[in-house]
């Protein structure tokens, strides 16, 4: 077996210890869990500050701002264009700086402006994207030729064709009944109520399948962690045995 350095063994043991600390939560809240929780929260908060500093503050604002300032010393390009670029880089920073007005009671209302701008732009951008991605595409995907669907079911093209045809009918009916469930302007009564009930049944069957699939994925994560602990025990015995 390959020999393990004292440094590697130390960090493997720290990782195993923290894993046990987190697992101790299965019993109840305790100082070990609290220690691991505060450690991971503190480290990740610090880590993300560094990441955001480099990927957002410098990359998206400070560097372009300096570039647009130094561009004035460059003979290429028009002055109007350079002023435009400078404004493009100053404005987002200025709007962002307004957020700091929150620290002063008298001016804290100013911080609502960047929030309003952010929410307004976000909603405006999201609406057509959602319409295109989730509504139009779904509607178009349901526009199927009934003759080809019935052809698949009844033309005797084998089990695969038969089930594909049935699947496409379920997709069309499921979409219409699902929309009926999410229609809020009428009570779920009569035929409409029946369609809504069928819609929620189809949704629940889908959720059940998703649940089973995801639980399997989570179990594989647990197995991965347990494998790590087994490796650690092996490494530990090898380390002290050698």
């Amino acid at each position: 077996m390959e020999s393990i350095s004292i440094g590697t063994m130390f960090w493997m043991t720290v990782a195993a210890f923290l894993t046990f600390c987190i697992f101790s939560f299965l019993y109840r809240d305790n100082p070990f869990y609290r220690f691991a929780e505060h450690l991971v929260v503190g480290i990740s908060a610090g880590y993300w500050i560094a990441i955001l500093y480099h990927t957002s503050l410098t990359d998206l604002w400070i560097d372009p701002l300096f570039a647009s300032v130094t561009a004035f010393g460059n003979a290429e390009g028009s002055v109007a264009g350079k002023i435009g670029m400078l404004m493009v880089n100053i404005l987002p920073g200025a709007i962002g700086l307004l957020m700091f007005s929150r620290f002063f009671k008298k001016t804290s209302w100013v911080s609502r402006w960047p929030i309003a701008y952010y929410l307004g732009v976000s909603a405006g951008v999201a609406l057509p994207l959602y319409l295109q991605g989730f509504v139009i595409r779904q509607v178009a995907a349901n526009m199927m030729d009934p003759r080809s669907i019935f052809g698949m079911i009844f033309a005797g093209g084998g089990a695969a064709n038969f089930f594909q045809g049935i699947g496409e009918i379920i997709i069309i009916i499921g979409s219409i009944c699902g929309l009926a469930y999410f229609y809020f302007s009428a009570e779920h009564k009569g035929i409409f109520g029946g369609a809504a009930k069928l819609g929620i049944w189809i949704l629940m069957i889908g959720f059940g399948a998703t649940f089973g699939y995801t639980v399997m994925a989570r179990i594989s994560l647990l197995i991965g962690r347990l494998n790590y602990l087994i490796e650690w025990v092996g490494a530990l015995s090898g380390f002290f045995g050698s």
């Binding site: 987190i22 939560f25 809240d29 869990y33 609290r34 691991a36 929780e37 991971v40 929260v41 480290i43 990740s44 908060a45 880590y47 993300w48 955001l52």
Partner: peptide, 15 residues
Amino acid sequence: FVTQDQFPYTAAVNG
């Protein structure tokens, strides 16, 4: 604000 990291955030909310 807790942290912008998924599972540390979860651990903190659990706590």
